[in-house]
Simulated assay, not measured.
Amino acid sequence: MSTPPQGQNPYGQQPPGQPGPGQPGPGGYPGGVTMPPPAPTGTSKVKKIFVGIAVVAAIAIGAGMWISGQDDADQAKKGDCVVNKGSNFKPDVEVVDCTSSEAEYKVAEKHDGQGECDRTKFSEYSETKGSDVLFTLCLAPHKP
């Protein structure tokens, strides 16, 4: 038996640019076999949409909380009008426009912490956190 010349394929001719049998081809597989890339799953698109929705929702919730907090009693200042949307035992005091038919009281004084209102002239509303008094409003009846 004769030895084939150096560099030639003993099994026949290979197409130009193709590796011979047993030799790694493109992609590292023997015989020139290449594996296709994995098919896209589409999850990255879904993730991007989900993240986008989550960001928009977070912004909307934050804006809603900020807007709804603008009429809370802690935002009241002297001269503002307020309404109690709760009860005497569980008040829910909110700032309203003084021209509104809802306006029940006008803020005569506002004290940081515990304040003393002249109870012969004013109603008093204090907001607490735990045992600490955050502020006190002295409220005069509002006459539109």
Score class of each variant (00 low, 15 high):
65 M>N: 15
24 P>I: 08
50 F>G: 02
48 K>W: 01
56 V>E: 06
42 G>P: 05
60 A>M: 07
67 I>D: 09
59 I>A: 13
69 G>H: 07
36 P>H: 03
48 K>R: 14
37 P>R: 10
39 A>F: 00
63 A>C: 08
25 G>Y: 02
58 A>T: 15
66 W>E: 04
59 I>T: 08
65 M>T: 06
64 G>S: 09
49 I>P: 02
36 P>S: 14
58 A>D: 00
62 G>C: 05
64 G>D: 02
46 V>R: 13
31 G>T: 02
68 S>K: 11
70 Q>H: 09
44 S>Y: 00
24 P>E: 12
69 G>R: 10
62 G>Q: 04
69 G>T: 04
31 G>D: 15
57 A>W: 10
28 G>Y: 06
63 A>W: 05
49 I>M: 09
53 I>D: 03
30 P>Q: 13
39 A>S: 09
60 A>F: 14
24 P>V: 11
43 T>W: 13
23 Q>F: 09
44 S>I: 00
58 A>P: 00
44 S>A: 10
32 G>N: 05
56 V>P: 14
31 G>R: 05
52 G>P: 08
24 P>C: 03
27 G>D: 08
54 A>P: 06
42 G>W: 02
33 V>Y: 12
51 V>P: 00
61 I>P: 01
63 A>R: 04
28 G>N: 12
30 P>R: 13
55 V>M: 15
29 Y>A: 11
67 I>H: 08
44 S>E: 10
32 G>I: 07
44 S>D: 14
56 V>F: 06
37 P>A: 15
36 P>T: 09
37 P>T: 08
51 V>H: 06
23 Q>K: 11
41 T>D: 07
70 Q>Y: 03
59 I>N: 06
56 V>T: 14
28 G>R: 05
36 P>L: 12
54 A>F: 13
50 F>Q: 11
26 P>W: 00
61 I>Y: 12
35 M>W: 02
30 P>C: 12
22 G>D: 13
25 G>F: 04
25 G>E: 01
35 M>D: 03
23 Q>E: 13
46 V>A: 12
64 G>H: 01
47 K>A: 15
48 K>A: 15
33 V>W: 02
57 A>E: 03
40 P>Q: 11
